[in-house]
């Protein structure tokens, strides 16, 4: 499938800021499931800084904007050809060993409820792949999709207690559950093309990857009860939502920030 992405993040400040600096992970991952046809990331008025591919295989680009800054826009436009790899991250180059992703963060620290959920889900499972699938199903059953209940800083434990949340919460609960069973797991940010079946979700999307010996990293979208396929565009990964954020930025000054994000995905005829 050929997917065209238009993603603009507008920042506005109620008082002029001295400067702004951003670290962007807004570039489609290079792996067997996707091929970039064209891609452009731009901050009008900003200066492009250092760019590199990190140990997890993500392309990172630094940007800075000189003050006074009252507004700035991060715009992403591009086209990606995607292919269903049954969720497998085939042909991806990275140097970070999977074991690194056993580390808990405050957002993914498992509490008793998450441990119980995990242990219950995998009882009788045959292997790690089976375990991963069962965990994803259990998380989907335990946390209903409902926007507006949780926020950016809701932890996995809090989301499971609420039993409601959005894709970020599904991903973090799944990560916490997997790690509690010693399965390396990480947070993935990206886009999801809305199929015509009307399944509710945001176009800016997130899911989890679990590492299975011999198969490697496999994506699990507990929010939608499936593995990522040709409708997904993968951008970058991290320990949790904050660590995998496609945009990490800071503006120096006393102004308050407001944010407005628009993401549009279109499918082009093959």
């Amino acid at each position: 499938m050929i997917l065209t992405v238009n993603h603009v993040t507008h920042y506005r400040y109620d008082a002029p800021m001295r400067s702004a600096v951003q670290s962007l992970r807004l570039f489609p991952t290079r792996f067997a499931g996707q091929r970039v046809l064209d891609w452009k990331v731009e901050i009008p008025g900003g200066t492009r800084g250092g760019a590199f591919r990190d140990g997890a295989g993500d392309r990172v680009e630094g940007w800075s904007v000189r003050g006074p800054v009252t507004a700035l826009a991060v715009s992403v436009t591009g086209t990606v050809e995607t292919e269903d790899t049954a969720g497998m991250l085939r042909g991806h180059r990275e140097t970070v060993p999977p074991m690194v992703y056993l580390r808990d963060t405050p957002a993914t620290e498992p509490d008793m409820a998450i441990r119980d959920l995990a242990a219950g889900a995998v009882a009788g499972a045959s292997d790690d792949l089976d375990r991963a699938h069962r965990l994803a199903s259990a998380v989907r059953a335990a946390v209903a999709y409902r926007p507006g209940v949780t926020h950016a800083h809701t932890s996995a434990a809090e989301a499971l207690e609420l039993r409601e949340g959005v894709c970020q919460d599904h991903a973090q609960v799944l990560i916490a559950a997997a790690r509690s069973l010693d399965l390396p797991a990480r947070y993935v940010s990206g886009y999801l093309y809305a199929a015509e079946d009307g399944t509710p979700h945001e176009a800016a999307h997130a899911w989890a990857e679990i590492h299975v010996p011999d198969l490697g990293w496999i994506g699990f979208d507990a929010a939608n009860g499936c593995c990522p396929n040709e409708l997904y565009v993968r951008l970058g990964s991290g320990y949790d939502a904050a660590d995998a954020a496609p945009i990490r930025g800071i503006a120096l000054g006393a102004g308050r920030e407001s944010l407005d994000v628009t993401v549009a995905l279109e499918a082009t005829q093959q």
Binding site: V21, G50, V60, E61, G62
Partner: peptide, 10 residues
């Protein structure tokens, strides 16, 4: 802010 991006890009 941004130091690590400069560092990692040499």
């Amino acid at each position: 802010p941004g130091l690590m991006d400069v560092y990692r890009s040499g």
